[in-house]
Amino acid sequence: MSTVKIKNGIKFNAENKKKQVNIIPNNFGQIKIITKYTLLDYIRSRRFIILSSLIFGLSLLLLFITDNMINVWAQMAPIIGILSSIFFGSDAIAGEFQNKTGYYIIPNPINRSSIYLGKWLAAYLASSLVLGGYLIITLIVGLINKNIPDQFIYSIIITWFFLAAGLSVVFCLSAVSKSILTSIFLDVILLLWLNILLINIAGLIPFEPWFVLNYGGEIIGTIFMDPYPPHVIVGNNPLYPKMGGITASIYTPSLLQGFTIIGLYIIIPMITGLILFKKKEF
């Protein structure tokens, strides 16, 4: 009986070696290959250097502005997550079409879903490196000041979960778009503008913005609060003190609600994006 070795998802055995037959790796092995080389392309790119420098500069600036970097984490981490998602994800699929990189990979024995997931993982890892840089600076400052709360580890986990959701949305929009510019435009409108606008409007109308990603992402910060804030607070809106008559509602998602919203934002756009990419014609 011949022994079978598996390396990078590729099976080799004595017979195959003799015949020099190429055994196509399984989907998992191919996803790993795409991830490795896309990540290599990302981390050598100008945008990675620009974003890393920007985050590093911002972290240094925050050191001078605030004494408590941990408090700032809750506000900054989601923004950095969204920004790096846009930086690494907006052209991931639209670029395959516009820059014709898809013509290099797709006519190979590989499923489109493997390409999509491989690129998604690469963008996730590249974004994680950027976010990780910010986390390290926050941690160092926190350790020096000895003010790292116990909940910080949960907040970090939620942040990375939130990053995955951001990337799923960005990838889905990239699969919808035929050009990189359209993809970036849609990302900025949806993730940076519309999301925030909806949360603010929700407090005034009022309605619970349960369908907004950033609403779910609020648990990155609320997890630090003790006691945990109530689901809804109704009162005069502190943002409009001169308009005394206006009442506003402040909604806070529960942890379960937050996880569910983020989870759905990972799954639904991921599946939609995959279907769109599979049907995309080059």
Binding site: Q30, I33, I34, Y104, P109
Partner: peptide, 26 residues
């Protein structure tokens, strides 16, 4: 057509990627 290849890769890496996808032994 004339595809673009990931610009920050070298020919060695770009071809290695395709070789691995096609199951050529390392």
């Amino acid at each position: 057509e004339i595809p673009e290849i990931y610009p920050y890769l070298t020919p060695r890496e770009a071809l290695m990627m395709i070789a691995k996808i096609r199951g050529i032994s390392p």
